[in-house]
């Protein structure tokens, strides 16, 4: 985490004049009630801990809804009373051979990544998706990669382009492009079930460059989920008065504050 923060701001200077310091992960995820800082709760989409919640107490938050039986939460339900008239007792299951039947609703996680079976899934939660859509995320990153000027460095000077120099925010994307390029130039590829691995020297060289870029810093970065990455990206961009969703640079912070509808994507919807 810390190495990630120290690396920023990036070495390549581009259009933005002033570069923001990167808030640490802890700060980012902390819920804030101050609306001037509303960008911080982007994508978290959990109810803010404000005065409302105290009033919801018995019905608040997603988690409680999922873990407490309706019979406890809603003992006066007409549905339950109808079932009782049919002979149901709380704690029992339905059917005439009750021993085998389920007593609790089946739980299924909402999978929104593409990690294979047995792969590590972070934050498994029922019905509480928190990650940004990966397509969306990629599009944003692409835009920023282009605006940053890194993409020109890459295109102008392909041979000496070092992906390790690319801003961590879009380094993954740069590496992806390089890798795709490498793939295209070389039809031999490593396959899941294939142990053969013939490489030519040019390939080895490029591979090494890629490996260099694949350092600890990137690993840390990759350990974040898309929403966290997107969050950092958004905050970074707003630091130089660019809003990803408006798609334009504002003159200054005031201009941004008064003319951009907000940090969240849905605040830009329908505009």
């Amino acid at each position: 985490m810390s190495s990630l923060d120290e690396e920023l701001p990036p070495k390549k200077k581009v259009k933005p004049l002033k570069l923001p310091s990167f808030p640490s992960r802890e700060e980012v995820s902390k819920p804030v009630s101050d609306s001037s800082n509303s960008e911080i709760d982007y994508q978290a989409f959990e109810l803010k801990e404000d005065e409302h919640d105290k009033e919801h107490e018995d019905e608040s938050g997603d988690e409680s809804h999922l873990s407490i039986s309706l019979f406890q939460r809603n003992p006066s339900s007409i549905g339950l009373s109808m079932m009782k008239k049919m002979g149901f007792q709380e704690g029992q299951s339905l059917g005439n051979k009750s021993s085998e039947a389920i007593r609790e609703p089946i739980k299924v996680e909402n999978k929104i990544d593409r990690i294979g079976i047995g792969g590590k899934v972070k934050h498994p939660r029922d019905f509480v998706p928190v990650q940004a859509n990966s397509e969306q995320y990629r599009d944003r990153i692409k835009i920023c990669f282009q605006y940053s000027g890194d993409v020109e460095n890459y295109l102008d000077n392909n041979e000496n382009f070092d992906p390790g120099d690319v801003n961590i925010l879009w380094r993954e994307f740069a590496i992806e492009i390089l890798e795709a390029d490498l793939k295209r130039r070389n039809n031999k590829r490593t396959l899941v079930f294939d142990t053969e691995n013939n490489e030519n020297p040019q390939q080895v060289k490029e591979q090494r460059r890629l490996e260099n870029a694949n350092n600890e810093e990137l690993k840390d970065w990759k350990s974040l989920d898309n929403s966290e990455k997107l969050e950092k990206l958004l905050i970074y961009c707003r630091g130089f008065n660019y809003c990803v969703f408006c798609g334009c640079f504002y003159n200054d912070e005031d201009d941004l504050q008064s003319n951009c509808p907000g940090v969240l994507e849905e605040e830009h919807e329908g505009i």
Binding site: S69, L70, F71, S77, I78, G79, L80, M82, M83, M86, G87, F88, E90, Q92, S93, L94, G95, N96, S98, E100, A101, I102, R103, E104, P105, I106
Partner: peptide
């Protein structure tokens, strides 16, 4: 008439029946 003791092949979760009756 008796949805609680109906001879289901696999009986559903009681809370699901409660929601259905309620609705």
């Amino acid at each position: 008439k008796d949805l609680v003791k109906f001879d289901y092949v696999d009986a559903p979760a009681p809370e699901t029946l409660m929601r259905a009756l309620e609705l």
